[in-house]
Nucleic acid binder design. Structure first.
Length: 322
RNA sequence: GGCGCGGUACCCAAGUGGUAAGGGAGAGGUCUGCAAAACCUUUAUGCGUCGGUUCGAUUCCGACCCGCGCCU
């Protein structure tokens, strides 16, 4: 039977998740909440985890990091890669740690897949195999784009139906799973995910007006170039070489194209702005599917939005009395 | 004023006497270990304007308008 009124219900600790597109003011909102509620901030943005990629990533400043504890920023070497699974493992560790201090964990997320891996978990599949991927990518280029889809069709028809024949990365992962585990990926999925337990997840979403967001993105992307994005890219390129994963990310890609002489500086700025705008749109598509989000129609640095968010957290923190 | 070239969607752009490629943007979507990645869907009863020829014109002809270049 359910708990009768008056029962002492031991509440699980709260976990606040702030989500929203790039440049929507997640960082500002996270700081406001952290200061109000004795919180600690946990990054959920794949590129902000990488060390030395600074100008183009909009990481919190040193001053901001002094105000409240920050986690999972600058934890990955530029030559390494991280995956959604690895992120989820690390983030969960951090969450428990914060909870042990009786502080409020605040996950600030731009990377939808990582966020879902953290809260919902992933299916019990094998980790990725670099050599296998290399081979598959090779055969995709030599034997045509349909080849991988045919391979998956043979290995796991159910999965093949779900992945479009042009979507190489997803085809590769599906084939990799089947080969490495000797089981069909579609069957492994049946076993479900390993969701985060022990926290009440409270999702706060920022959804500012699209035109205003795009305007802000444009300004910020230009500011990154003015703040030395090209110079930083040049330095990192010399230090780590062009195959480094993070050079494929927003802004760095365009800065690198400029350094190679493919774009003028101005063209690179315009292209970076465009890429950021496209990204923001994709993020919104992802986040709209997140469950139980309290949406705020505005930017996270807006005081009124911050007050609303604080009120929302307070309301949910109070023991539900009915 | 004359000559030449051009005017096709929000932008770039192909094209044909038989009913408008492609790319980008915008919008929507997918996402279970590279995700700031990758992929999918969608957008002109309309081709500067007005006439003419024709069964049929965006395509051919004429006039006009606009832009660019050159000449005087």
């Amino acid at each position: 039977m359910g708990s009768a009124p008056g029962d002492i219900v031991t509440q699980e600790p709260m976990l606040v998740v702030i989500l929203g597109p790039t440049a929507s003011g997640k960082t500002a909102l996270s700081l406001a909440l952290a200061q109000k509620f004795n919180g600690e901030i946990v990054n959920c943005d794949s590129v902000a985890m990488v060390r030395e990629f600074n100008v183009g990533t909009a990481k919190p400043t040193d001053a901001e990091r002094e105000r409240v504890p920050h986690h999972l920023f600058d934890v990955v070497d530029p030559t390494q890669y991280i995956t959604a699974g690895e992120y989820a493992r690390q983030a969960r560790l951090v969450l428990w740690e914060i909870d042990s201090r009786d502080h409020l964990p605040i996950v600030v997320g731009g990377t939808g897949l990582y966020l879902r891996a953290l809260t919902e978990g992933l299916f019990p599949g094998p980790q990725r195999s670099e050599e296998l991927r290399q081979r598959l990518r090779q055969s995709a280029t030599t034997r045509g784009p349909d080849h991988l889809h045919r391979v998956l069709q043979r290995l796991d028809p159910a999965s093949a139906k779900k992945v479009h024949a042009n979507d190489i990365p997803k085809l590769i992962r599906a084939i990799e799973v089947c080969l490495a585990s000797r089981q069909k990926m579609s069957e492994l999925w049946q076993r479900g995910r390993d969701p985060l337990r022990g926290f009440r997840v409270v999702r706060l979403g920022l959804d500012p007006d699209r035109a205003a967001l795009y305007d802000r993105i444009n300004k910020r992307a230009r500011r990154m170039f003015e703040a030395g994005l090209i110079e930083e890219t040049h330095t990192l390129l010399a230090k780590y070489g062009p195959t480094t994963r993070a050079f494929a990310s927003l802004g760095y890609k365009q800065a690198a194209q400029h350094l190679r002489g493919e774009l003028t500086r101005e063209q690179a700025i315009l292209a970076a702005q465009q890429a950021h705008r496209n990204y923001a749109k994709r993020q919104m598509t992802w986040f709209r599917r997140e469950p139980e989000v309290t949406w705020f129609n505005g930017f996270g640095d807006n005081e009124q939005i911050q007050r609303q968010a604080i009120a929302r957290v307070e309301a949910l923190a109070a023991p539900a009395s009915k």
